[in-house]
Write a protein that binds this DNA or RNA. Sequence first.
DNA 1: TTCCCCATGTAAATGGTTACATGATTAT
DNA 2: ATAATCATGTAACCATTTACATGGGGAA
Lengths: 179, 179
Amino acid sequence: MALDHAILVSLTERAASGYDLARRFDASIGYFWPASHQQIYRVLARMQEAGWVESTVQEQDGRPDKKTYAITPAGEAELDRWSATPSGREAVRSDFAVKLRGFRDRDAILADTRARRADHVARLTEYEASEARFYPDPSALDGADLGAWLALRGGIHTERRGIEWCDEILTALEGPGSR
Amino acid sequence: MALDHAILVSLTERAASGYDLARRFDASIGYFWPASHQQIYRVLARMQEAGWVESTVQEQDGRPDKKTYAITPAGEAELDRWSATPSGREAVRSDFAVKLRGFRDRDAILADTRARRADHVARLTEYEASEARFYPDPSALDGADLGAWLALRGGIHTERRGIEWCDEILTALEGPGSR
DNA sequence: TTCCCCATGTAAATGGTTACATGATTAT
DNA sequence: ATAATCATGTAACCATTTACATGGGGAA
């Protein structure tokens, strides 16, 4: 049920349509909890029935109508409840680690590793740009901004360790055997 | 479909019953791809129909019968095919990051962070013990052992960055505001 | 006598992915 | 012309989680 809460968190930052949320989930909060528009529409419908969000329809000319969702007091209460609930250990699921563990095709692993490294570098660059732009002075942050910055820091740590790991794999596999 | 491959990898290391696999998935390969016994039994049944594994029943006295599964040549071929397929970017889903981002209850976040830190330390200790015990001389490794060691290294990196992140959060939240 | 280990599953519910569906506007 | 963007969804499928179900043996 955590997509519910990710959407609620996003709505506390600003009311949005399903479409808007889908774009936010392509970046920003979606880095910690990816979701497709189909899923988002379904969860919004469910949460509206539960009374956690409410929608207002805006007509637009030359564009389809837009349903803007906002969080309700009941939704805020649910977020409070959820925030105070201890979160359990998170499952790690890595295709790549399983593939490494079942080591078969050295060249495929090398290719995969190089592609992953490039992905990590690209994302790290994005994160670092965000940090420099939005949080130039972390010591001045508090509340929601502090939380958002700390979440971003988590992303930065994740990408850095991903790069380190890739480099270790490349060193181990490209080394003596490859020449 | 990656539980299929995780099970196949585990079976190449040694034939096993569903029960044995469930225990392996509580540790070892389960650190990279967790799975419950229920799921394992269902996937084994499906893979047997597909011809990727075969089973032999062993009677035991004073214990229930045991079905031991082994990988077949078709299963090996499937593993080869899968190993040569590039793996896409892996989804990160973190409840905790969403909670941080939606910063509400500072004390709950502190408690969560301390609990997470303790989990990371515990798992890192396990990983480091495994490394010292099974891979004391990494430069001597090759093939399957090299892959298993590199996967373990990934785990070690993950836990270390988890600890770093927690420490950063604790520093930011325990600091000035708490006294 | 109570709990954990061995050993196998089925069933229901929830969550996530992929494919399908529609239709107007704007930029190349 | 073609593709991308805005805007909303439904439906089918696949994977994961949680609850239910059974039953003997050994240890505290």
